[in-house]
Write a protein that binds this DNA or RNA. Structure first.
Lengths: 353, 353
DNA sequence: TTGTAAGCGTTATCAC
DNA sequence: GTGATAACGCTTACAA
């Protein structure tokens, strides 16, 4: 072959070595920032590389090192806001690292159960970040552990020490929100649950209940509504709640999408927010700022959680020390959708449907 | 070395060959679905592979083929809804292909100008999908062409034949929306522009103007407001518009996020939508369905555009025939935020601030 | 401080 | 149908 100019394709390390009058090893040293290269030599190499528009071949590099420098972000969440926060947090952490991020939107935790390791292997991933609720599938966790695939979970609720994790305290946050409603004088507070498949659903509910119990307020179980974390399910739950003569003076939804649906239902019933009914959400997603009035909610640092999780994953892969569990603070954002309970406590203002 | 069992690491093609009593070439044939492998041999290979949990090493494969099977999606859009639609469209097209998608969220087209090819080369991309407005930067386009990097643009507005493209007709869609408002009897219609850096801004405005001109309605230039495609800029524009005594009876915003902001401004001024003022958006983003009332808008098939663009990119990379330009249809979605113009044409109902 | 040689795990060539 | 063997472009011993 006697290759001289490497016709056609991209320049290789050999081309650069020839052009700079050095060896491929020296070029390799320069491109890997290894010490012991004379400044002048380095300069010559860099010039040749620039002239040839040389970029190291990632595949070759990966092959010889036995590493892919690829990590995967697995998520199931249907909320674009949440997903983008997640991605951005991970991507930002990867900036200036050699690692790259591959996305794995999943239909459901159930559908992925037992397949995740397989997918990771096929894609050559070196590690995985699992967004909720994927990190709560026992089978997935078991598989990943047995397969020795490094992984970090965001906001897991089961087998907390099965992997490094990062999260907020959902129970505590829900308790804080409930306390806020109690402080405003509400006593008939409804709670709309999220997807039963998400463990956050149970946690938020238990925080809600705990706050009521502490305050000595008994809970009317008829005010516990089911939902699926979607706008539509919130709308439906709201309609059911407001159709009742003994409707609540406040509704705490386990996420913002449902809260927005509930707000629409309230308007359908001619109820003013917050004069007739207060509505609280959870997540501080974009949607919470575009309803009118804006939703009182809990800010979850999704971006930060993804950032920290990615950080931990890199440490795990590189076998560096890391925190097994990081707790990030939530924030209660009081906005226009919650206000003083109507006087008379169980007021029934507004037109009925 | 006399390697027998490949200790520690992943199983390789050699391991599979040994275990199945064949050669690596045969294993390779099986895993690449090449013909001329006896069914029985194939079966043996597959069994051995399964037993060993063998997955072909992507890096090695890429190296020898001189291909990365990586494509990049570059976007600048700050709207999570839009971004996720884009990603999903591209990802869905890639399903069951060997290609993988790398994400490149960009700060701005300007910041990327002159760097894009560089980034693509460094990441070893085989091709690129450019979401608006990145596809309108002349320098980027020139560079990509000269560097012979396959790329497809979504909704470009300049140098339309510089690359394969897919889009909708923004001018036509804006004209349709304006016509809808005219049909409802509106004559004082305000237009809120988007980010001047996005070419869609100019197109939508010109569609708006064209419709007015055709209808013989003169346009009061004071009803042309600036915006940035963000919720906040819409809110600000809305406040300016509604503070004026001669406020419009309808507002057409160049996207939904701004329209949602305008709706909030209207409520601040005590204006009922659509009784006092009609509001129209553009994009059919999630936000358009969570305001109250829901926004009349234009459905842009973002998902489909990304899907088609990715499809075209793959064809381009594989040197297969493809359409240089695909036009996708828009859809006018009439929802609750637009209604008949207040009687008396220039009505001024509602309380002022 | 620099260079030589040996792989990394595939696919491609070409003989059998 | 199948199997040696040579690349692919790079990093890592190991010399010099």
């Amino acid at each position: 072959m006697e290759a001289t100019a490497n016709q056609g394709g991209r320049a290789t390390i050999t081309d650069v070595a020839k052009r700079s009058g050095t060896s491929i090893k020296t070029v390799s040293r320069v491109f890997n920032d290894e010490p012991f290269v004379r400044a002048e030599t380095k300069k010559r190499v860099l010039e040749a590389a620039a002239a040839l528009d040389y970029h190291p071949n990632i595949a070759a590099r990966s092959l010889v090192r036995g590493r892919s420098f690829l990590i995967g972000l697995f998520y199931e969440n249907p909320s674009p806001n949440y997903v983008v926060d997640l991605q951005t947090g991970a991507l930002d952490r990867l900036r200036d690292e050699r690692f790259r991020l591959l996305l794995f939107p999943c239909q459901s935790a159930r559908a992925m159960s037992g397949k995740l390791l397989q997918v990771a292997r096929t894609s050559g991933l070196e590690g995985i970040v699992l967004a909720p609720p994927l990190g709560d599938d026992p089978r997935t966790v078991k598989e990943l552990r047995e397969g020795r695939m490094p992984f970090v979970r965001i906001a897991p609720t089961t087998a907390l020490d099965a992997s490094p994790m990062v999260g907020i305290d959902d129970v505590e946050a829900a308790r804080a929100m409930t306390q806020h409603l109690l402080d405003l004088g509400h006593r008939r507070i409804a709670f709309v649950q999220g997807d039963p498949g998400h463990p956050s659903t149970g946690q938020r509910l238990s925080g809600f209940r705990a706050a009521l119990t502490e305050a000595g307020v008994s809970f009317d179980e008829r005010l516990l509504e089911e939902g699926m974390y979607t706008f539509e399910s919130g709308l439906a739950a709201g309609r059911r709640l407001f159709a009742d003569r003994m409707r609540p003076t406040a509704v705490f939804a386990a996420n913002d999408d449902m809260a927005a649906g509930i707000a629409v239902a309230a308007k359908e019933y001619g109820l003013d927010i917050p004069a007739h009914v207060s509505i609280a959400g959870f997540d501080d997603s974009l949607i919470s700022r575009v309803t009118w009035p804006q939703l009182t909610t809990i800010h979850q640092p999704t971006y930060d959680m993804a950032h920290v999780a990615t950080d931990a994953l890199l440490a795990l892969i590189e076998r560096q020390p890391l925190d097994r569990a990081v707790g990030l603070p939530h924030r209660l954002l009081v906005r226009g959708s919650t206000g003083k309970a109507p006087s008379g406590e169980a007021a029934n203002a507004g037109s009925s449907a």
